[in-house]
């Protein structure tokens, strides 16, 4: 995540041409495709009375959906942080046959359409599926439960932690580890006292990214969840349901709450990345 160019002085705007053109085009395009439609959501919500707004975004059913979306995304983010760390470590530090293929495969959730992922996961984890048939006799139901939601969110979050950690792991100076080892630290100590602290900012960033992505996910979850109000209904589904009941204001109000959450997540991620950059320059 370090950025060598950030330290170089930027050329002044007078030397390179195209400032006006690129600024104008970027702002126009951004405005038309992103800002104008997004402002529609905010303005529609602004037209509501405070009382209606609270009633729409804080009803028990909506609160239950926030809880599920939040907790399932949190769990998926944590699982991805743990396994993502191992995967990144293995991919960077070890060599084994097929390493390149495994490395390429990590990006699958970016490339595979979420709806396809949804039906595939449901097929695997329902009671007759490849994995489901072994879990069901032990009383573990995955498809059509909140565990299913968690599985889908874990799937879509796999690449984030791995991809944020890989470059940081690559840049870790072997000298530090060697120094720690020569000073008598055992491997475990070196790992927990020297290596892990170096990884924390990137790990946090990766977690935040996976979490943010999971909060909004829809396509894969609707297939594997049982979509029960109060139990297995994620917030994006509540928005769709409101829309199908012609409750445009309610849908938009909940969308606005989610937008605020996404925006805060983005700001947090930017701060984390800045922190991680500073951290590594020391």
């Amino acid at each position: 995540m370090t950025n060598p160019a950030a330290t170089l002085p930027q050329p002044s705007r007078r030397v390179l041409p195209g400032f006006g053109l690129s600024l104008g085009f970027t702002l126009t395009y951004l405005g038309l495709i992103v800002l104008l439609p997004l402002s529609a959501a905010f303005l529609k919500t602004a037209g509501m009375s405070w009382h209606d707004f609270v009633a729409a975004v804080a009803s028990p059913r909506v609160m239950a959906s926030y809880r599920l979306s939040f907790l399932a995304s949190l769990a998926a983010g944590l699982v991805n942080s743990f396994f993502g760390l191992i995967v990144a470590w293995v991919l960077v530090r070890y060599s084994f046959p097929g390493r390149r293929i495994v490395d390429a495969l990590v990006d699958l959730p970016f490339a595979l359409p979420t709806a396809v992922a949804g039906i595939a996961l449901t097929t695997i984890y329902n009671k007759n599926g490849w994995v489901g048939q072994y879990l069901e006799p032990h009383g573990i139901k995955v498809a059509y439960t909140s565990i299913g939601v968690f599985v889908a969110l874990t799937f879509i979050g796999v690449p984030f932690v791995v991809r944020t950690l890989q470059p940081v792991l690559l840049e870790l100076e072997p000298e530090i580890e060697e120094a720690a080892a020569s000073l008598g630290a055992n491997r475990w100590k070196t790992l927990t006292r020297v290596i892990l602290p170096e990884l924390y900012p990137a790990l946090l960033t990766g977690f935040a990214l996976a979490f943010a992505r999971a909060l909004g996910e829809y396509g894969s979850v609707v297939f594997i969840s049982s979509n029960m109000p109060m139990h297995t209904e994620i917030t994006p589904l509540v928005i769709i349901t409101k829309l199908e009941q012609y409750d445009y204001q309610g849908a938009t109000a909940i969308a606005t709450v989610m937008l605020m959450a996404s925006f805060s997540m983005l700001l947090l991620i930017n701060l984390l990345q800045k922190w991680s950059r500073r951290y590594h320059r020391i």
Partner: peptide
């Protein structure tokens, strides 16, 4: 747009 739910 990355952080916005596709539904939204």
């Amino acid at each position: 747009p990355f952080a916005v739910s596709p539904v939204i």
